[in-house]
Nucleic acid binder design. Structure first.
Lengths: 156, 156
DNA sequence: TATTGTTATACTCTATAACTATA
DNA sequence: TATAGTTATAGAGTATAACAATA
């Protein structure tokens, strides 16, 4: 029945968004008190755990546009937390690196943030967390961000 | 084991965020093409389904600060979609109303948005959606609903 | 010409604090 | 004094388009 399917979808969506905002709001406020925004944290974290990357690769990892990414890089570079250097083989390409200051910052902040994430997620037991992970993964895969625009066109 | 618990929590968190950003990104882009931001849509939707409200009540419903709310009201008022009038009993209090134009806008947009939500959530079957809803509810407990009306209205 | 990335522009959201008006 | 709401200020993310530099 179509109506029932719609209700179920809206119910799942609403609670998904509410849970995410609840968790993210808390994490974002903690980051703010540590001197980072969520976008900055994500970039530093990617650079820490995956190593230096080009802006283009960062766009893919962080799911954001190249223009927005330049802004985040600029804000971090201004504070001396990252630096972007041209690649010698292809000078169009650049590589974004953590500076020692940036590495110190993310090395300090990441465990604090992780601890709060664990605390938040502990509203669910281990089995529930695993189920949530699996369902969300399925949901994310069904909606790859890169094809977002094309999918939108079909709905209007 | 603490390490294992941390890993599981981070895995669940990461996929939760990814799924939400995937879905929200798409919805936000669709709203953009229809002339609304997510915050504006939420306010109009609350006014449509719950009726006129004071800014303070809207703050509670939409989980945002009073200052940010004033901004959203101002942007909508400038476009003639809402109007805020002083209450005659207590002139400190105001009531935010949909204008006919605002009502027409949200009445048009809500079903379109709902349809895309259903399409997005259909990456999961009904049983999975129900499990996701329950887990997310547990995770986000204590926060007010995002949609004024979750399950009871017909939405085309 | 195509690709990579930055700038320009303009808007919205967010957070904090100061402010106004009413009670 | 306390409450409801707005304004001021500053900063960050977003989208689009124009742009430069390199391949």
């Amino acid at each position: 029945m179509a109506e029932n399917g719609m209700k179920k979808a809206l119910g799942a969506y609403t609670n998904l968004i509410r849970a995410t905002e609840s968790v993210q709001g808390l994490l974002s406020r903690q980051l703010g008190s540590l001197g980072l925004t969520m976008g900055q944290f994500q970039m530093l974290e990617a650079l820490l755990h995956l190593g230096p990357m080009s802006p283009g690769t960062l766009c893919d990892k962080l799911l954001c546009g190249s223009s927005n990414l330049s802004m985040v890089i600029r804000n971090l570079q201004r504070r001396g937390l990252v630096v972007s250097r041209a690649n010698e083989r292809d000078e169009r390409r650049k590589m974004v690196h953590l500076t020692p200051e940036g590495r110190a910052m993310i090395t300090k902040v990441f465990p604090i943030q992780a601890k709060l994430i664990r605390a938040q997620m502990s509203a669910l037991d281990g089995r529930e967390q695993e189920i949530l992970r699996r369902l969300c993964k399925k949901l994310g895969l069904g909606n790859p961000a890169r094809f977002a625009v094309e999918m939108t066109k079909e709905v209007g």
